[in-house]
Design a protein around this nucleic acid. Sequence first.
DNA 1: TTAGGGTTAG
Length: 403
Amino acid sequence: MEQVRSNPYVCNALVDMYMKCGMSLKAREVFKCNPVRDVVSWTSLVVGCIMEGQCEEAMNCFKQMQSEGFQPNAISFTCMLNACSYTNAVKEGRALHAEIEKKGLHESDLLVGTALVNMYMKCGLLDKGLEVFNKLPVQDLVTWTALIVGYVGHADVEEAFMYYSQMQVEGFFPDSITMTSVLKACSGLGRAQVGKEVHTRLLAMELLDKDATLCNGLISMYAKYGLLADAQKVFNNTQTHDVISWTALIMGYAQSGDVDDVTCLFDEMISKGIRPDSVTFITVLNACSHSGLVEKGQTYFEAMSEVYGLVPISRHHACMIDLHCRMGQIAEAVALAYRLPFHPCSSMWRRLLSACQNLRELEYGSHLFEQSVQANDNDAALYVFMGNIMTMSRYKVQLPEYV
DNA sequence: TTAGGGTTAG
């Protein structure tokens, strides 16, 4: 065993394995015992930190590696650029870019170039990402996809489609990762026809049988456009359904206002052995709220924690408050808000005050207004609601005199 | 002999 541990290659592989298995303490132990630490051992440590979401720690490791005299290479730069893109660390990313340019690594190594493009795009510096992309001596499918993903991620879907076309003109054939992003762009484009064309393309590429993400993306896209028959057809033609496929379909029906279909689908999902999750419940509770089904909503809300062990978050509570507000049950809505396990957020205060405005509830309104401005006195909407409540409740009180 | 690039839909 000692012989094995004294071999630097074995030590590096061990650090990498432990880090990738989430055993960072064990990895660090092996790292410390490594007789010949080098840029590879340090990089394994850096990658492990990034995988754990400890990007700041990754940057510290990178600096410490340099202070101990190890020069970063193309691989360590690539890893650090990833850390920057995860954390939006533009300043650090730019500093790495400068070092990379000094060494000419972006020109000699396409993986470094792609990581640079990706870093700028993820951080929202789209023009800079495009500039780096254009200056690369060569690009490949991954580099093009990084560019497209960047535009889609920042809701610039027209640009994304433009580069999707240009990529193909340049002779690069999209794969399932490219298409996942293109599909996401279709949902945000506002033109269902383009989505249908992408669907036809996916069928021709024979990607749908192999990729559940693409199928779910298609269901979701059709649901968003209100094309329920198309969403249902993709769902029916898909071999296996997970909670995401079911919820996407349920969302489509909820959007069309058909609460009976929503509850039927929910029951069917359960009967197939798929457990609903937090998002499924937000969808179902919203559907109940829009249809004014207080008791049904209450039943789902209780089942969420009692049957499925899910802890309601702010959005679930907001649905229940909204449900009572819609039904004019202001006392119940206020009671819910005061029983929350956290302070009501500003949208909840606004929802409650808006209900008071509609109901001309001066007493509840005044009380809620005081509470809400104590929590958030910068929200101008609260003052507007209160002004309206006062004006309208005065009208309500005076009304009998004029009748 | 060991470390690196693009996706995750509801």
